Structures are given as C-alpha cells and as structure tokens.
Simulated scan of single mutants.
Amino acid sequence: MRLVRRIAATGCPLALALGGVVAAAPTASASPVGCYYRVLEQVPDADHELVEDACKTGASGEEGAFKACYRILREDYVPAVIAAEACRDAAK
C-alpha cells in the first residue's frame, strides 16, 4: 500500500507540471496565427496572403515591424483599429 501512495505522490505533481507545459505551448507559437484570425474574422474579404505576410512581419514585436504590419493591413483596406489590434497580437 505504501508503494501505491509513493507512486501517487510522485505522479500527481509530475502530471500537473506536464499539463502546464502542454497548455502553455500553443500560446507561445500562436501569435501570428492570432493576428491572422483576428483580421479574417472581422474582415473576411481581406487578401489572405497579405494578412499572413503582415502578421509574420509584425511577429518580432519591434516598432518597425508593427508599423510595417499595420501599413500592409491598411493598404488592403483593413480598418485602423482592427489592423492595430492584429499587429499587437502578432507580437505577443
């Protein structure tokens, strides 16, 4: 019976730790994807390739990258507020 308790005592924290890692992993890599879907949900007629390029450009988080992302989206007639929010999402 003690062996079962030891296994449970070691396995539970390990499972919780691994679960936290798995839960955090998608958000770390999904920043340009979040930008992309934010734009396409609110402006479905936007050019998919331009939106993808803009979101990848803004992913570094630098001010120049944000401005380039914003400019690309605005040239495709994405409203200013949506473009700014999406480019901020790309940098997260």
Rank of each mutant, 00 (worst) to 15 (best):
S60T: 10
A68T: 05
A65I: 01
H48E: 11
A46P: 03
V51K: 12
L40N: 04
C55F: 14
E49N: 07
H48Y: 08
E49L: 00
G58M: 02
D45C: 11
C35V: 12
K56L: 06
C35T: 10
L40M: 11
H48W: 03
E62N: 04
Q42M: 06
D47P: 05
E63A: 04
L50M: 06
T57L: 08
V43I: 08
C69Y: 01
V51A: 13
H48G: 01
C55L: 02
A59F: 02
A59C: 14
C35S: 01
L40R: 09
A65T: 11
A46L: 04
E52C: 10
Y36T: 07
V39K: 05
D53G: 01
E41M: 15
C35W: 08
R38V: 12
Y37N: 08
L50S: 15
E62Y: 02
V39A: 10
T57F: 05
A59K: 10
R38L: 15
R38Q: 07
E41W: 08
Y37L: 05
A46N: 08
L50Y: 14
E63K: 09
G58N: 14
A59E: 15
D45A: 11
A54M: 00
V39C: 01
R38N: 14
A54P: 11
V39M: 00
G64Q: 11
T57K: 03
G61S: 00
E41L: 10
Y36F: 07
S60L: 09
V51D: 04
F66V: 04
G61D: 07
F66D: 01
V51Q: 03
R38G: 11
V43S: 02
V51I: 15
G61H: 05
E52R: 14
D47T: 01
E62L: 00
E41S: 09
S60N: 07
K67G: 00
D47V: 03
C35G: 13
A68D: 13
T57A: 15
V39I: 06
A46D: 06
T57C: 02
K67M: 10
E41C: 09
D47M: 09
V51Y: 09
L50P: 01
P44D: 13
F66G: 01
A68V: 02
Y36E: 08
D45L: 06
H48V: 05
D45W: 00
D53V: 15
E62P: 06
A65C: 05
L40C: 04
E63W: 12
A59G: 01
Y37I: 11
E52T: 10
L40V: 02
C69N: 09
T57R: 06
D53W: 13
K67N: 12
K67Q: 14
E41Y: 09
C35I: 12
A54W: 02
K67S: 12
D47Q: 00
Y37D: 08
L50Q: 11
G58F: 11
G58A: 15
Q42Y: 13
E49T: 09
V43L: 03
D45N: 02
E63L: 09
E52N: 07
E49S: 13
A59H: 15
L50V: 01
F66I: 07
G61L: 08
D53I: 05
G64D: 02
H48R: 06
H48Q: 06
A68H: 04
Y37Q: 07
C69M: 03
E52K: 13
Y36D: 09
G64N: 12
A46R: 00
E52S: 06
V43C: 03
V43W: 01
A59Y: 04
Q42N: 15
Q42V: 10
D53S: 00
K67Y: 13
P44H: 09
V51C: 09
F66Y: 15
